[in-house]
Design a binder for these strands. Structure first.
Lengths: 336, 336
DNA sequence: TATAAAAATACAAACGATTGTAGCAAATAG
DNA sequence: CTATTTGCTACAATCGTTTGTATTTTTATA
């Protein structure tokens, strides 16, 4: 079908082995031959057969990327994944690695995921967002390096890159404090580790500033805008509510704002709100939402770098890397 | 390293060829041997080496997915891609195909894209959103089937699946008309084919209902919320403006709404707005945005189906498939 | 000029499967 | 009881590379 190394060899009257070495510019073959081979290769528009190369090298040059299944539940997860993928792609491409995607469908043990892993069709794996212990175990027994991204996973022995949620929560809360708010609530999420990290940052910020946390004001939604709306509405009805909220995702923060407005109060006059993520169009929310910007693509890039190091066996850095978020001030907290 | 067909052969004292056939349940091998082989395979936890299989079959079982580079420009493109990817993944997985992603970086001819294509590392290619004629040509000379998704590309000879933008524009416009609006503008986008389709649907709807289009009211933005904001603001200043707008993307529609509000007018009382896309959180825009929902994941699924048919050489359907969008009524157009 | 050393190339065995052909039983036919 | 068919299985080539070893050619040395 297409030109192989043998065609070049035949054309030039030399052996395939030499052609192979010439193509690799091996010092074992004369400069002249290298030149002739390269010329012939170009003339025949030769392209190496990657599959064959893989067979002998035992390396696939593939990176598996496992995404969470419940992608449809949280719209911003979609966006998150998309951006992270960009980061990943960017550096994977630069290193000549391909990406193989698979969705983690917890149920069916027949999915692409298992196929990829068990078939050793990847040199390493990136797991985004969710952790499936089965997969992790399978990966480990197969000796395939893994790095977790945005996993909110507790095990410190896993390689992972995450947003620094604790710091994020702390900075957000301190921003509120610096604006003079004394009663600050938090609306978290129904995801254990993530929630714990946020809570810890939130509490620490309060403590450092000599403020007391009121347990009645730390709530938990399940991620959707709507859930945050309901939670907020409920607390508003009770007549005792804080003057500000740190909300752990923008998507929920939008629900909070809407609830406050629907309740007849004003943001930020009556209640200030900070979110986290920095999803698009926040400038067009009313009022524009102040938030902690998470560097998603950067997380992806970092993770691939780590994984590549692991694959090539020369990674020396920490097992856990936390990317620092940044406060983006808009109008939902008012100003001094 | 890991168990091969030979290990099984050795263990059972039979030949590798027979093992291979047994694993394929070939009628040429006895039921008994098949059973013994399967047992041994399980015991040794044998997994076929895909690379080797690929080498002999000549099929990669990979589908290349080309994404557009300018992903950072339009935030909703990110989301769009992510959703489409889900659709693609879903059916690719079901057919045991892997996905190989590459970003179309028009400039550098060295990118992963060219690597994938020229190295014939894919059985077929999906191109999302943007068309690079070079790639297309390269693909064609290599005999690799391609299907374009959301490409807004004119060439009817290319296999493609798109949203039916013309119909979308027409339905949106007619919705406005049915609500009694007589002067209806359109805010389009700086992308030739897409704009043309929308314009055609918009004009057709007006014509069918006996309304005249006012050329002063068909405008063009470059996609961002901000660009739509400015356009709207400008036309508002001129004191002559339509009572309703069909805006070709939600992202821009949000800019329109904001401009109208900032100008001191009301949506939908003074100006009604319909968007297109149905991006997330539209229920939380103020007022909630009526829009044409595009079935993005469905486009992805359809495209893969088409490509697979092409790869396997039995595709019989149309070269062009248009997915029908659907009107989602919220509050930005008022009601009768 | 014979000879050792160095340089360039050829040969052949891998990598892990698939598959056409050949071989050897046992079963059936004459 | 030989001849032919049938059912299984073994052998070996193949896919397109890479790479260790052997061989040839060239160059330098004595």
């Amino acid at each position: 079908m297409s030109t192989t190394i043998k065609d070049i060899a035949k054309l030039l009257g030399i052996s395939p082995g030499t052609v192979s070495r010439a193509l690799q510019k091996s010092p074992r073959v004369s400069k002249e031959t290298i030149l002739r081979v390269e010329e012939a290769a170009k003339k025949l528009s030769y392209r190496p057969n990657i599959t064959a190369q893989r067979l002998v090298s035992g390396k696939t040059h593939n990176i598996g990327v496992i995404l969470s299944k419940d992608i449809r539940e949280y719209t911003s997860v979609q966006l998150f994944n998309s951006i992270i993928l960009n980061g990943i792609l960017e550096v994977a491409e630069a290193h000549n690695y391909n990406l193989n995607f698979a969705i983690d469908s917890q149920e069916e043990k027949q999915g692409a995921l298992y196929r990829i892993v068990q078939n050793k069709d990847v040199d390493g794996v990136l797991i985004i967002n969710v952790v499936n212990e089965d997969i992790l175990a399978s990966l480990r027994t197969n000796g395939i390096p893994v790095v977790l991204i945005d996993n909110h996973f507790d095990n410190r022995s896993e390689y992972a890159v995450n947003n620094d949620d604790r710091i994020g929560a702390s900075i957000a809360t301190k921003h509120l404090i610096s604006l003079g708010y004394k009663t600050i609530g938090m609306i978290g999420i129904n995801e254990e580790t993530f929630h714990r990290e946020c809570l810890s940052g939130y509490l620490q910020a309060l403590a450092e500033c000599g403020l007391r946390a009121d347990p009645r004001f730390v709530l938990k939604g399940w991620g959707s805008t709507h859930s945050a709306y309901e939670i907020t509405w409920n607390i508003l009805k009770q007549n005792r509510f804080p003057r500000a909220f740190f909300v752990v995702t923008d998507e929920m923060a939008i629900g909070v704002i809407r609830a406050v407005k629907d309740f007849g109060l004003s943001v930020p006059r009556d209640i200030a709100v900070v979110g986290m993520d920095d999803i698009p169009l926040l400038d067009y929310v009313d009022p524009p939402l102040t938030t902690m910007r998470i560097y998603i693509a950067e997380m992806g890039r970092t993770a691939v770098g780590m994984l590549l190091g692991l694959i090539q066996g020369h990674y020396q850095g920490n097992t856990q890397i936390a990317i620092q978020p940044k406060l983006i001030v808009r109008k939902s907290c008012g100003s001094k």
